[in-house]
């Protein structure tokens, strides 16, 4: 095992680590914010909206994230240059960078997986608790914010933790559209030094630590949320 490359690339690994963490936390946040309405309209509200949400979940859960990523980056990315108006607009720098595409693709995927989970979670909240809220004169949003969402989240926190780990583990895919997180830097090392195992094992170790931290964070969150079995 040869590890003398590590000091040379340390700075780039730190940079890559930062990108990995940013990509992960941004997509988890945006994805979760999208997942709430996607889950909600499948349980309540107009039927056509629910059908669209269900179709969205089926489409994004039924196809590989890699293809979604490539479709967005190469597919949509090849269309934008055809509009001269876009080229001169202020958002053009965003449209030619790879990182925003990765965030959008990952968020859409997270939204689909967690939206599916949230639909089940909203459905599992007992009807009488919502009725109790209404009887107290709560408006729709107060009811959602104070009763429906917290009760739904309480039930599915372990599932959401699992989904979060799966999202973290798919972050290396972003290196295929030139977003070089930890994995991307590792591939650069592999190309420069012709070492195969050392950089791969190093990245695997970093991800192992990240997964561990994530799991314990969710564990801490779960312990803070009161559950029925812990009376």
């Amino acid at each position: 095992m040869v590890w003398d490359w590590l000091p040379t690339y340390a700075a780039r690994f730190v940079e890559g680590f930062w990108i990995t963490v940013q990509l992960f936390s941004l997509s988890l946040t945006f994805g979760f914010l999208l997942a709430i309405p996607i889950g909600l309209v499948q349980v309540t509200g107009p039927k056509w909206l629910g059908l669209i949400a269900r179709g969205y979940c089926t489409l994004f859960r039924g196809t590989p994230l890699l293809i979604q990523l490539w479709l967005l980056y190469y597919g949509l990315g090849s269309i934008f240059p055809h509009f001269p108006a876009l080229r001169e607009s202020v958002i053009w720098p965003i449209l030619i960078a790879a990182f925003p595409y990765a965030v959008v693709a990952f968020s859409l995927s997270v939204a689909a997986y967690e939206g599916h989970v949230m639909a089940g979670a909203f459905r599992s909240v007992p009807k009488n608790e919502l009725e109790a809220g209404r009887a107290f004169g709560m408006g729709r949003f107060t009811l959602l914010w104070r009763i429906w969402l917290p009760r739904a989240l309480q039930n599915v926190l372990p599932t959401l933790a699992g989904e979060a780990v799966l999202t973290l583990k798919s972050v290396p895919l972003a290196s295929t559209i030139t977003v070089f997180g930890v994995y991307g830097v590792g591939s650069i090392v592999r190309q420069d030094t012709y070492l195969i195992y050392e950089p791969l094992l190093f990245i695997a170790f970093i991800y192992l630590c990240l997964t561990g931290i994530l799991v314990s964070l969710f564990g801490w969150l779960e312990r803070r949320v009161p559950s029925e079995s812990m009376k």
Binding site: K169, S170, Y183, L200, A204, Y207, L208, T211
Partner: peptide, 8 residues
């Protein structure tokens, strides 16, 4: 289960 599939 803890390491990304691509690396594995």
């Amino acid at each position: 289960r803890a390491v990304p599939e691509l690396i594995l």
